[in-house]
Design a protein around this nucleic acid. Structure first.
Lengths: 171, 171
DNA sequence: AATGAAATCGACCAGCA
DNA sequence: TGCTGGTCGATTTCATT
């Protein structure tokens, strides 16, 4: 084991991860053939990656647009600084329906909240809900005109350097 | 068919979507039992949802933290307004390694870029890459201290009202 | 949309490097 | 510890009603 507690990951693991995060429905045989490995070996590694929570879950990606969720709003939230309720406020933000991402940030703004709704009414309701939270001081919302990339695939967005760091750093 | 070209979705479809976006490894028998349906009916509906691209893909969710990607940066990008290269700039932003989300927004800022890196060096390199893009005027980066929710599950974040809108609006 | 049969796939095992 | 090949059982898949 190395200095940190991350599981050891090699090139083969990265190749498997890249493939299954792109399409988890791939059969073991095909995947094994692509990697010049046996089915069992791939199976073994997949289990290990799941046990180590490198693969957190396998999920169907539901297209928001197919459900009419074509409005994305970004809301900057500032809280009253004397109040030590930052944790509570963050929690309250994540629980609002429509909110899919909450960041706690350094800087003049405390939280950045991303949400997805179907129409202006829902947008107004959502922003109202945020303002109503106890301790919230000021909000500023921005409307997203176009999502150019909404691709939270982890491996696909990594550079070669990042991948090398993973392989070298956990061996 | 209704006024728009979205596929018709009913309560059962929503229940299926909610379940498979949470865990796509569930077997048909269990899912069918939960919904009081036959396996074939669930199978039929799943195929329909995939064909209609309501389910865009099934993917393994790779934990960024397991790969050392524990730094998230949000960068606001403003472009020179006389240049009509907004599309090109947006495209260039999505192609940068580490970038996982790009929004084109209304307001004083033109693009909002989210990226994930392993260390400060990579963060600096990434911001340099953004600044180097032809037409980019000004950038402002914010460091994320904590991700409270990074859960781009679509159905899980929807309110009852939103779900009703889907069901009523596409029947 | 349900049934039941056929094909396919993933899980597991013993043995080995 | 990680890999191989093969077998068994479960699951998906499909034709038919």
């Amino acid at each position: 084991m190395d200095h940190n507690d991350r599981p050891a990951i090699d090139e083969t693991d990265v190749a498997i991860l890249e493939r299954v995060e792109r399409d988890a429905d791939v059969n073991l045989a095909d995947l094994a053939a692509e990697l010049d490995l046996s089915k069992s070996a791939v199976h073994y590694r997949l289990n290990k990656l799941k046990d180590a929570d490198v693969i957190a879950s396998v999920s169907a990606d539901v297209d928001p647009l197919a459900l009419g969720l074509d409005m994305v709003v970004i809301t900057e939230v500032s809280v009253a600084h004397e109040s030590g309720y930052a944790d509570d406020i963050g929690q309250a933000l994540t629980e609002i329906d429509g909110v899919f991402q909450v960041y706690y940030t350094m800087g003049d703004v405390d939280f950045i909240v991303h949400s997805r709704v179907q129409d202006r009414d829902q947008m107004n309701d959502l922003i109202d809900e945020i303002v109503t939270i106890d301790g919230v001081n000021e909000t500023s919302s921005t409307f997203v005109m176009k999502e150019l990339q909404t691709n939270p695939k982890t491996v696909a967005n990594m550079s070669d350097t990042m991948i090398e760091t993973v392989i070298d750093g956990t061996e």
